[in-house]
C-alpha cells in the first residue's frame, strides 16, 4: 500500500520536532487524522499564528508578540542590573523567585564548542549594546554545566573588555539541603568555594 502523499508530508513535517523519529511521527500523524481532527486544525492554526506573530524582543531577546516585551516595558524595574540567562524557561524561573527585579537578556542558547555552537550563534553584539545602554552590572546566570560555565567565562571576558561590571550567581548546597543527601560534586565544590563568615 502506498502512503498518500499528504500523510507522508505530515509525517515528514512532524519529524522536525526534537526527539521525534519516523515511528513517533507516524503515530502522531495517525492520531491526529483518526482521533483528533479538530485538535489537528487547532494545532495548525496555532502554529501558523505563533510563527507569524512571535519575534524576539529587541531589548531582552526573549520571545515577544511586540517589539518590546512586557517585562522590558514594566515600570519600576531596576535598570542597574542585567541578568543573562540561557533560555526563556530560565528567565521564568528567575521571575518566580521574586528576588530579582532587574532587567534580563535571554541568549537563546549557549556556547558548546563540541556541538559546533560557537560565538556566532549567540546575539553577543546585542548583549554588549544592551549592557552599555543600561550602564548596568551584568549578572551571569547561565547553567552550571560545563557549557554554561564556558559561556559565562566567554561573556565575562567580552563584557569586562568593554568596561562592564560582571558578576556570576553563586553555587553550593541547596536551601534546606542536608550534607548527608547532597551529591559529592556539589559538596566538593561548596567546600572549595567556601566563604568567610561575616559579622
Amino acid at each position: 500500500m502506498k502512503t498518500p502523499s499528504s500523510l507522508e508530508e505530515l509525517i515528514q513535517a512532524l519529524r522536525c520536532l526534537p526527539g521525534v523519529g519516523p515511528k513517533s511521527a507516524q503515530r502522531m500523524a495517525y492520531h491526529l487524522l483518526q482521533r483528533d481532527r479538530p485538535g489537528a486544525l487547532q494545532l495548525s492554526a496555532a502554529l501558523g499564528q505563533a510563527v507569524q506573530n512571535i519575534r524576539h524582543c529587541c531589548k531582552c531577546n526573549n520571545f515577544s508578540e511586540d517589539d518590546i516585551c512586557g517585562v522590558c516595558l514594566a515600570e519600576g524595574r531596576d535598570t542597574s542590573l542585567l541578568c543573562v540567562v540561557e533560555m526563556p524557561s530560565d528567565m521564568l524561573m528567575m521571575e518566580q523567585t521574586q528576588c530579582f527585579r532587574g532587567m534580563y537578556f535571554v541568549l537563546m542558547g549557549r556556547l558548546s564548542p563540541l556541538d559546533g555552537l560557537g560565538s556566532r550563534e549567540l546575539p553577543l553584539e546585542r548583549l554588549v549594546q544592551r549592557a552599555r545602554e543600561l550602564n548596568s552590572e551584568v549578572i551571569l546566570a547561565t547553567n552550571f554545566t560545563v557549557e554554561g560555565e564556558a559561556t559565562a567565562h566567554y561573556l565575562a571576558t567580552l563584557l569586562r573588555a568593554q568596561g562592564v561590571k560582571v558578576s556570576r550567581i553563586a553555587r553550593g548546597l541547596p536551601v534546606g539541603g542536608e550534607l548527608e543527601h547532597v551529591d559529592s560534586g556539589t559538596l566538593a565544590q561548596a567546600v572549595l568555594e567556601r566563604r568567610e563568615v561575616q559579622g
Partner: peptide, 25 residues
Amino acid sequence: EWQGGQPLLQGTALMCGFYLNELLL
C-alpha cells in the same frame, strides 16, 4: 560514581579542557 580529587576547571583552563576533549573525540 563520583571519584573526586579533581577541582572543577574554570575560565581559560575550562576552554583548554574542551580543546583536549575535542581532540580526543
